[in-house]
């Protein structure tokens, strides 16, 4: 039973990280129907920014919890700025172009950002300090779940609640929902759709940056390539849950995390990815638009 619980919590942690990244994919897709392949890179930039800030603040001798919070905030701001700029440079000029053009632009942006970090920073793996202290009250359970994992789970939960609040109860959230349903109609009733799209990119990038900081301090290392695999997995999770649907992205991420964890735990880690993608294929056969995706009849 302990073993099951450990795998369950491991999968939940992994799923939380996927969820933080998948939210960005699904929100952007929900509004402009673009798969933003540069999203994984925003996650990676978030982690790098945090690492730089942490190095500087540690030299200044600050308290670790304060460092973690400040680094997180700066990473979020910096990544959001990247998300905003990427949208303005790479996607906005292509708003009315065929969807394939924007997709190619997204892939180009992803390659550009990866290589930019490679050149500006390093190709080596860099150690990422573990800033979450070991909680004393957790010590008897440390073999089951570590304090970093708890922080990841709590942060994800808080981000989810805030995001739900933002979308359900604020004016900009209402505008987002309107723009995702019908952009032209939203414009006609006086919603600044360009602004809505920018806000979507900023929010998506912010959650990805939080994911980047958390996972980097969990596994303790980063390099310029970490965004690629995490981005692909989060994309799979978003599709699994139904791309365009926010609860779907979260559900899909947890399902993916658990599938990987249990497949490794009870079968073999050789087949970790096989099971993850097998699950995706099965769900898409029976529910082509994903678990919680809406079926839209008027679009191809």
């Amino acid at each position: 039973m302990d073993y099951f619980l450990e795998l369950f919590l491991g999968g939940l942690t992994r799923g939380s990280i996927y969820a933080l990244i998948a939210l960005g994919y699904t929100m952007v897709y929900g509004i402009i129907e673009l798969i933003n392949f540069a999203h994984g890179e925003i996650y990676m930039i978030g982690a790098f920014t945090a690492l730089i800030v942490i190095s500087v603040l540690t030299l200044m001798g600050m308290n670790t919890v304060a460092i973690l919070v400040i680094a997180g905030v700066i990473a979020v701001i910096y990544s959001s700025a990247y998300g905003y700029t990427v949208e303005k440079i790479a996607y906005k000029p292509l708003r009315n172009a065929p969807r394939l053009s924007a997709l190619i632009s997204a892939i180009g942006m992803s390659l550009f950002l990866q290589n930019y970090v490679l050149l500006a920073q390093t190709s080596d793996f860099l150690p990422f300090p573990n800033l979450v202290p070991d909680f004393e009250f957790m010590e008897p359970y440390a073999h089951i779940i570590g304090s970093t994992e708890i922080v990841i789970l709590l942060t994800t939960a808080v981000v989810m609640v805030l995001l739900t609040f933002l979308i359900k109860f604020t004016t900009i959230g209402k505008a987002m929902r309107a723009a995702s349903q019908d952009k032209t109609m939203a414009m006609l009733v006086g919603i600044n759709v360009n602004r809505v799209i920018s806000v979507t990119f900023v929010v998506g990038s912010a959650t990805a940056a939080i994911g980047g900081v958390l996972i980097a301090s969990h596994v303790g290392m980063i390099n310029f390539y970490i965004g690629f695999i995490a981005g692909i997995k989060a994309f799979v999770a978003a599709v699994l849950g139904g791309i365009g649907s926010i609860p779907g992205a979260v559900l899909g991420s947890f399902i993916l995390g658990w599938t990987e964890s249990f497949a490794t735990g009870y079968v073999s880690s050789d087949y970790e990815d096989v099971f993850a993608f097998l699950f995706l294929v099965l769900i898409l056969i029976f529910r082509p638009s994903g678990i919680l995706g809406r079926t839209e009849k008027n679009k191809v």
Partner: peptide
């Protein structure tokens, strides 16, 4: 390159 290896470690 996987995100983490907690399941294998368990």
């Amino acid at each position: 390159g996987a995100v983490d290896y907690s399941a294998v470690v368990q």
